[in-house]
Design a protein around this nucleic acid. Structure first.
Lengths: 116, 116
DNA sequence: TCGTATATGTTCTGGATTGTAGAACCTGCC
DNA sequence: GGCAGGTTCTACAATCCAGAACATATACGA
C-alpha cells in the first residue's frame, strides 16, 4: 500500500537546523561542509561534530531548503571534491518564519539586554 | 568552588523548549499547562499538542530550568489540581544564551525585512 | 619514477534527545 | 451520573550528536 505522505513532516526548523542554514546563507553559495562548520564555530564558539553537521545539511536538502552542487577539487593539498551548499528561496522563508516566531515569543521580555 | 551542576546532556535549548520556556516567563509563575499552551498559540498561531507540551515541561523541570508547584483547584467547574510553572534563574540564563547564539548567526543578514 | 604517507573532505553507522499525538485518567461541580 | 477543566501515560517519529570509515589529490623519499 503506497501511502506516501510527502507533505511537511514538520513545519518548523530545529534549533541546529537554523544555525546551519544561517551559516550557509553567510557563505553565499561558496560554503561546503567544513567551512559551514567553521562559520558556526567562529560566530558562536560552538563546534558541532561532523556527523551532526552533514546529517543536518542532508536533511535540509531533502526538505528543499538548501541546494548542493559538487565542485571540482582545488589544487590544494587535499583531494576529495567539495560539496557546495546554497540556500533556496524556500529556505530563506523558513528562516524568516522561525525568526518571527521566536521574536513573537520574546516580545515584552527584557531579555538579552541589548536594545538592538 | 561553585561547581555543582550536573553535566548537561546538551547545553542548548531545543526549538520547542525555547517557546515553552518563554511562555512560562510571560505567565510569571501563574502559568500551568493549559495557559502555557494558550500563550504559545496566541503569540505564534501554533497550537502544540498536549503531549508535546507536558513532555517538554517535564523535561525542562528535570533540567532545572523551570520549577513547578501544585496548586489547590479553584472553585470553577473543573476539578483537577493545576500545576503551576515558573522559570528558574538557570532557565532564564539558558534562554538568553540561546538568544545570543541565534543573534550572532543572524548578524549581517537582512533577514526579517522589518528594520525594527 | 614509483609507492606510500598525509591532508582535506564526505559518507556511514549507531545511539541519545527532542518533538508529536492523542488516549486514558483524575476530580470537583451540576 | 455526566460533564468540564487538567494532567499523566504510552508509543513513535524526527532531530541531534559522535566518530569511524572511506575517498582522493598532492607531497616526498629512495
Amino acid at each position: 500500500m503506497a501511502n506516501q505522505r510527502t507533505p511537511p513532516p514538520r513545519d518548523y526548523l530545529g534549533e541546529f537546523e537554523q544555525l546551519v542554514l544561517l551559516a550557509v546563507v553567510h557563505l553565499e553559495g561558496e560554503g561546503y561542509g567544513m567551512t559551514v562548520r567553521g562559520e558556526i564555530e567562529r560566530r558562536t564558539g560552538r563546534s558541532p561534530s561532523i556527523g551532526a553537521l552533514y546529517g543536518t545539511l542532508e536533511r535540509l536538502e531533502e526538505k528543499g531548503l538548501v541546494r548542493s552542487r559538487t565542485g571540482a577539487s582545488t589544487a590544494e593539498r587535499g583531494g576529495r571534491a567539495k560539496r557546495f551548499f546554497a540556500v533556496t528561496a524556500s529556505g530563506m522563508r523558513a528562516l524568516e518564519r522561525s525568526r518571527r516566531l521566536l521574536d513573537a515569543m520574546w516580545e515584552g521580555i527584557p531579555g538579552t539586554g541589548d536594545a538592538r
